[in-house]
Design a protein around this nucleic acid. Structure first.
Lengths: 222, 222
DNA sequence: GCCGAAATTAAAATAAACTTAAATTAGCCT
DNA sequence: AGGCTAATTTAAGTTTATTTTAATTTCGGC
C-alpha cells in the first residue's frame, strides 16, 4: 500500500541522495536517468506520482509531460527545476503538471508534496469526464454529442465529478452562478430539468436523482 | 462559471495588487483582512479554492486551515508565507493544505497553481456512522443504500450516535422537530415505524427497541 | 382480560421540486 | 448600430415527496 513514484533526473549524485531519503520515507522509487527512459516508464500506469526534472538529456521534462498527457496519462506530476523562472512554472502547470518545486529543495518538502498530491483522487482528464455511458466533453460542451449550454454544463460538471454523492442547490448556485448572485433555487431546477431531458434522449442508464431537501446526485436508474 | 477564490491576507497594499491581477485573470475574489474574518468565510462552501497567508492578525493561517479541515471543509487551500522554512511548508501540507507558495510570488504563478488545483475533482466528504452491519451515510441520507427522509435520518442519527443507550421521544422531538415545536409523540412513533420497516428490509441484525415509557435504543436482535 | 402506551396505516395537508412557456438579456453577424 | 439567434431569467401552474393528522390495531404489564 506504499506509494510508488517515478523519478526522472539526470544528476546521478543528487538522484542517489534523494532516492535514499524517499525510500526512508517508505516511498518506492523507480528511477530514470534520461528523458527517453523516463518517458517509456511514465506511460505505464504503475505510479502514484511522477517527479520530473525539466532539464534532461534527449527529452526535456516538459516534453515528457506534454506527451504523456496527450496520451491520456493522468498520473500526478511534480516538476523540478533549477530555473526558478515563473514562465517555466506556468508552462509546466498549464501542460498538466500538478506541482512545481524549485531546486535546490529539501527532500522533506518533496515528501510532503507527494503526500498532498496522492491524498487527492486521481486527476481526471481535463477534457472529458465520464460516468457510466455518459461522456461530458468539456471542450465541445457536449454530453455524448448533445450540446449543452453554459449553465447546463456547469451543473453537470459538478454532478459528474462527484458521482453518487449529493450536490446541493446552494453549491450549484455558488459554483455556476457565483456566490454573490441572489439565489433562486428555481434557476437550478429549470436547468436540471433541461439536463434530464437531454440525458433521457440519449437512453442512458444514468440519471440525475433528486434528494428532497438535500440536492441532486448522479446515479443509475433502478 | 468562473473560479471563486477566498483570499486572506493582512497586507492591504499587496492584497489590492494581487486581487486586481486575479480579477484580470477572470477569477472572482473574496477578501478577508484578518484571521477571524477569513475563518468565517472559509467555512462556507462557496469557494473553489482558498489562498491563506500564514502570518495574520487574530488567527494564523495554519490555525484557520486546521480548524476548517476539522470541520470537514475540503476546499483546496494554498498557503502563502514569507517564511521560506521547510518546517512551515511541511506543517501546512500536513494540516491539509494543497499547495504552498513563498512570498514574494508572481501572480501568474498563483493563477497557474489555482488552475491546477481546481482542475482536480473536489474531495467528497462521505460522513458515515456505523452500528453493526448498518451504515448511515449522512451526506447521501441512506442506510446501506436505502434512502431516508429528513426526519427518518434525524431520528436514526440520534440512535446510532449513542448505540445501546436510550433516547427519549422528548429528546427526539427537540432535536429533529425543534425545541419550540409542540410535541406529539405520535410523530416519533410514525417515523420509528418507517425506520423499522426499512431496517427490516435490509435483514439487519440490528433493531430499534422500544423501552416502554422511556424511549428507544438501537441494539441487536436476540 | 383490561388499560394505556405504542405501532401501524391510510388520508389529507403541506412544501419542495418540476415543467413550460413567455419575457428578457446577451452575444454575434452584417 | 440594428437585427437575429441563442441563452437565461421569470413566473405560473402542475406534479410529487414528505410530513402531519387521525383512526385503528397491537402489544405489554398488571
Amino acid at each position: 500500500m506504499s506509494m510508488r513514484v517515478l523519478y526522472v533526473e539526470d544528476e546521478k549524485f543528487l538522484a542517489e541522495a534523494v532516492m535514499h531519503l524517499l525510500r526512508k520515507a517508505k516511498i518506492d522509487v523507480d528511477y530514470a536517468a534520461d528523458g527517453e527512459a523516463g518517458f517509456e516508464l511514465a506511460l505505464k500506469p504503475n505510479y502514484d506520482a511522477i517527479v520530473l526534472d525539466i532539464m534532461l538529456p534527449k527529452l526535456s521534462g516538459l516534453e515528457i509531460l506534454k506527451s504523456i498527457r496527450e496520451r491520456g496519462v493522468k498520473t500526478p506530476v511534480i516538476m523540478l527545476s533549477a530555473l526558478n523562472e515563473v514562465e517555466d512554472k506556468v508552462r509546466g502547470l498549464e501542460y498538466g503538471a500538478d506541482d512545481y518545486l524549485a531546486k535546490p529543495f529539501k527532500t522533506a518538502e518533496l515528501v510532503a508534496r507527494l503526500n498532498a498530491l496522492v491524498r487527492r483522487p486521481p486527476l481526471t482528464d481535463a477534457k472529458k469526464l465520464c460516468y457510466e455511458d455518459l461522456i461530458l466533453d468539456l471542450s465541445n460542451r457536449t454530453i455524448n454529442g448533445v450540446e449543452l449550454t453554459d449553465k447546463e454544463m456547469g451543473i453537470f460538471e459538478m454532478l459528474i465529478k462527484t458521482p453518487g454523492s449529493v450536490v446541493t442547490k446552494e453549491q450549484i448556485l455558488a459554483h455556476v452562478w457565483g456566490a454573490d448572485a441572489e439565489f433562486d433555487d428555481n434557476y437550478v431546477e429549470v436547468y436540471v430539468s433541461y439536463l434530464r431531458k437531454k440525458i433521457k434522449s440519449l437512453n442512458s442508464k444514468a440519471q440525475i436523482k433528486t434528494l428532497r431537501g438535500l440536492g441532486y446526485k448522479l446515479c443509475l436508474t433502478n
